[in-house]
Nucleic acid binder design. Structure first.
Lengths: 153, 153
DNA sequence: TATTGTTATACTCTATAACTATA
DNA sequence: TATAGTTATAGAGTATAACAATA
């Protein structure tokens, strides 16, 4: 009888390298914005609110690919930090409208600058054409699998 | 006075696309191996032991980029599942030697097959040359930043 | 009855540090 | 004392589901 073939090498998987690089980028970024008192999930939350002006928690949950329970907890934390405020929805007594406080609005460009710097520092080892190619490949995969959620972790 | 420029778009960051695709790959994989009763961290743990035959927890912690406390908890869970066994290190009364049980050894190729299938399903939207290029770009970044830890989350 | 948002519970991973036993 | 491993604690994320108020 033939012996069991050895399992494939971890390093053969594109998913392995993707995760290794992605985790390193995210962890570096998380460490940097920690100095601003926010987590990556909170940054995505603030960034989404910045674009939308005001947003119902349920819509935000959908955009961030999180449950409404998770959004509720995030909103609690960001309210305590005075970066986000809740207002009742005048058209629906059950609903809310989330928006940035002035402090929250002021913080977003600061965090965006950190994100820019982090991205540049990490990918400057690639030539511009290589960076473009990497982006195109990743977007092609995202499109093929209909990935739309803003990644949080 | 000039108005504050709008913060850069999230989608401009390579790190954003990297995280989106990487999270999707990992979450799909996590869901699949859940059926085998293990998490991604446990899979990496089992895979490392499979290569090494037997390994001290401290070495495993270093390879996986986890603390010894985290390794200890993982080893607890995998022992309960009868996939890993602890043995005293005869040369050092403080140390241990971790190894796979027969059940653990039998499970690794099964998980490796799932990993293969997951990787293939996710990246088959790319042409072979594109897959090679993506891998080369990711390894180039990993090399430049001296990333060596097997990513776990 | 269905929906919005809150809350409770539980599990995984992470980080720090106190602790035990051995070297 | 230093090191190997365990344990406790705490925080962040994820998921499910029970719950209150409103539609």
């Amino acid at each position: 009888m033939s012996p069991t073939p050895p399992p494939s090498d971890l390093h053969d998987h594109l998913g392995y390298w993707l995760r290794m690089v992605s985790n390193a980028v995210s962890q570096d970024f998380a460490r940097e914005i920690e100095g601003q008192g926010v987590t990556v999930a909170e940054w995505v939350f603030l960034r989404a609110l910045h674009d939308a002006d005001c947003l119902a928690p349920s819509l935000l949950a959908e955009r961030m690919g999180m449950t409404k329970g998770a959004i509720s907890k995030l909103a609690d934390r960001l309210s305590e930090k005075k970066l986000v405020q809740r207002a009742p929805n005048p058209e629906d007594g059950r609903g809310q409208m989330l928006s940035l406080t002035p402090a929250g609005r002021a913080l977003v460009p600061e965090l965006a600058r950190i994100a820019d710097g982090n991205d540049a520092a990490f990918f400057d080892t690639l030539a511009p054409a290589e960076r473009d190619h990497l982006g195109a490949l990743l977007r092609k995969i995202a499109r093929a699998h209909e990935l739309t959620r803003a990644p949080v972790d």
